[in-house]
Write a protein that binds this DNA or RNA. Structure first.
Lengths: 210, 210
DNA sequence: TATTTTTTGTTGCAAAAGCAACAAATATGT
DNA sequence: ACATATTTGTTGCTTTTGCAACAAAAAATA
C-alpha cells in the first residue's frame, strides 16, 4: 500500500489507547483470522506479510488480497455472501493489532495519543485500500493470462520506479493471485521471454518494452 | 449498494452547502466523467444508472463497476496506472453531484445541513464501497464462466431475498461485467438451463438449487 | 548437515473460452 | 408507427487455458 502512514512510528503507544486492542503474533502458515460473519473486526498488520485466501470446493486456492506492513484488513470490509472459506494466512512471522471497528473510527475525547493518530490516518488508509482494490479489479478483468501478467508487471515496475523489479511472492502464489492455472502461467511466462517482452531471472523481471 | 443512506432524502438542500458543488444531468450514452489523472474528483449519483467502463486496445469493453442511486464514484478512488481509458457512462438519464474530495470529507463549522449529513454518512458510504469492491473481486477470481454466473446469481438472489430475481442489465453488459466472452456466456447459460441449475425467462432468473 | 517439503519448469492431452458471423427479436428515437 | 440500432440466441472453428503428472532445484526444518 502506498501511504505515508507507518504504523511502526507510533506502535509503542498502543497500550495506552482507551479501546480494547489486542496485539497478537503469528508464525508462517498460521491463520490470523477467518471471515465467518460480520463481527466488525478491524486489523492492522504491524509487521510481516499475510494473504487473504479463499479455498473453493474444487480445492482451488485464490489469493484475494496480499497484505504487508501497515495494511488494514478484517471482516468489517466484508459482507459475507460466499459459501467459501476466507482466511487470512501469515506468509511470514506477523504481528497484528485487532480492534472492533466501532470503537476506533470515531475520535474519542480521552486524549489517548494512539487512538488520535489512528483516527486521523484512517480516512487515508481506507482511501488507499479502495485504490488498491480498484487496481486489483483492473488486473482481474484482463481477459488473458498474458494481459494479467503484463498488467501486474507494469504495476510493480511503476511502484519500483524501475523497469527491473522483484516479484513479491512465489510463482505458485502469483498464479493464485492472478487467478490462473500455474502451469498455464509458466507457459505464458516462457512465451513472454521467448518473444522478448521480458527478461526473467527467477523472481527478477525486467520489462523490455517501453 | 446496500446502505440506509438515500441521497434523495436531502438533495433539496445541496445548494446551501458551503462547498463548491455542481449538479449535472446526463442522457443515456453520455460520458459523465473520464478518469485521467488524480483530480480528487468525488461524485454521488443522485438518480439513474451508470457504469465505469474500460476499453482496452483490442476493443474489449469491461464494466469495472455498476452504479445506481446514492452510489459514490470518482477519480479520488483511483490511482491511475493503467494505459486504458476509464469512463463513467450514463446507462439512463442521470443526475450527479460533483465535489472535490478534499472539500467534503471533513466536517465544516459553517452549519450547512447538507455538508453535515454527507460527512456523517461518508464513512458508511465508503465502507459499503469497500464491501462492494470485495464482492466484485470474489466474483472475478472465480475460475470458470459457470462459477462467475452462479456466484453473481447468488448475490442477486441474496439481495432480492428470493430465488427469483431480475438481471439488472443486458446480457451483453453482463458478459462485460463478468469479464467473459458473450457467446461463451450464452452457451454456459444454456447449459445451466439444460442441466436444471436455473430457470430463465429473458432477464428473469430462478435458482433451482438450494 | 541431512531430510523433508515446497517450488519451479515442463509436457501431452482434454476442456473451456474466445472469435466471427448471422438471423431473429427487442428496444429506441423521431 | 416506422426506421434504425441494439440485443439475443446460436453455431463451427480456433486458440487459450486447465489438469495431471513428474523430475530437478530450492527452501525450510529437524
Amino acid at each position: 500500500m502506498t501511504t505515508s502512514f507507518n504504523i511502526n512510528e507510533f506502535i509503542y503507544d498502543f497500550k495506552n489507547c482507551c479501546n480494547k486492542v489486542q496485539k497478537k503474533s503469528f508464525n508462517r502458515g498460521q491463520t490470523i483470522t477467518s471471515y465467518i460473519r460480520n463481527r466488525n473486526q478491524f486489523c492492522i498488520l504491524v509487521s510481516g506479510n499475510a494473504d487473504l485466501v479463499r479455498y473453493d470446493l474444487n480445492g482451488n486456492r485464490t489469493i484475494i488480497e496480499h497484505f504487508s506492513e501497515s495494511d488494514i484488513f478484517g471482516e468489517v470490509f466484508y459482507s459475507i455472501t460466499t459459501n467459501n472459506e476466507l482466511l487470512v494466512e501469515a506468509k511470514s512471522k506477523c504481528e497484528v493489532l485487532i480492534y472492533n471497528y466501532q470503537d476506533i473510527h470515531h475520535k474519542c475525547n480521552k486524549g489517548c495519543k494512539f487512538h488520535e493518530i489512528l483516527s486521523e490516518y484512517l480516512p487515508e488508509l481506507i482511501l488507499n485500500k479502495i485504490t488498491d482494490l480498484n487496481m486489483r479489479i483492473e488486473l482481474l478483468t484482463k481477459r488473458t493470462t498474458r494481459d494479467k501478467l503484463l498488467g501486474y508487471f507494469n504495476l510493480l515496475s511503476t511502484k519500483a520506479l524501475n523497469k527491473t523489479f522483484e516479484i513479491p511472492f512465489s510463482l505458485t502464489d502469483l498464479a493464485d493471485y492472478l487467478s490462473v492455472d500455474r502451469s498455464a502461467m509458466m507457459r505464458e511466462l516462457k512465451l513472454l521471454k521467448d518473444e522478448n517482452f521480458i527478461k526473467k531471472d527467477s523472481k527478477k523481471i525486467t520489462l523490455l518494452y517501453k
